[in-house]
Amino acid sequence: MTEPIIAFDKVVKRYGSHIVLDELDFTVAQGEKVTIIGPSGSGKSTVLRILMTLETISGGVIYIGGEPLWHERRNGELAAAGEAHLRKMRTQLGMVFQQFNLFPHMTVLRNLTEAPRTVLGLSKAEAKARAEELLQLVGLTEHANKFPGQLSGGQQQRVGIARALAMRPRIMLFDEPTSALDPELVGEVLNVIRRLAAEHDLTMLLVTHEMRFAREISDRVCFFDKGKIREQGTPDEIFGNPRMDRTKQFLRAVREGE
């Protein structure tokens, strides 16, 4: 097996005495589409937030493409990473947020060109070309000069996806991308993610409550509970024939809500 693109080695995350991630071991292969499901408070969003370096870890090591994310190798030993290292690592990841977090004072186009221009150093024309290509991908070409507030939630989230992609990350993190949307707007966002999954070699890590969607696009589904992966397998295994009682109980509860 080739080296995994993401590897968690006994990762611990604590808030005071509350343990969010409990010596988590977790790997994702290059190009793999992995969905994380589980009850709220199970630590599933924390996995994404730690990968995006929005939250620190309390213990363990995370590797991205074999290189430690939160540590630097100094004299053969792992030491806490400095900001320069974190910045370098961060460019490999892109994140889509539950609340979109678009920049409300910038047009859609500028939301997409801001980081490529200032961080990657693209020229205005290059960044614009890249943004237009992505807007086409998410079907929002005609909205380039609007402000986020003038768009529907579904459109905003599609901009959010395009904005993350504009940095050309190797790994895309989706943190409950449709949870803040009205039900009738969920489909358009899922369609975009579906196309991404089918047409690109991106590694995708998705936290979602859309079980049918998870089943359809995932290579692997992980059931999180109390800071650990309790069960994982192919979508058919997890959704069709879960082994653990806790997983069955969770899936039953979710289906009743649908």
Partner: peptide, 15 residues
Amino acid sequence: VEPGQHEAAKALDIP
């Protein structure tokens, strides 16, 4: 200003 704005900027690696 919402924390999400800082998080989005950080995720995009904006200094």
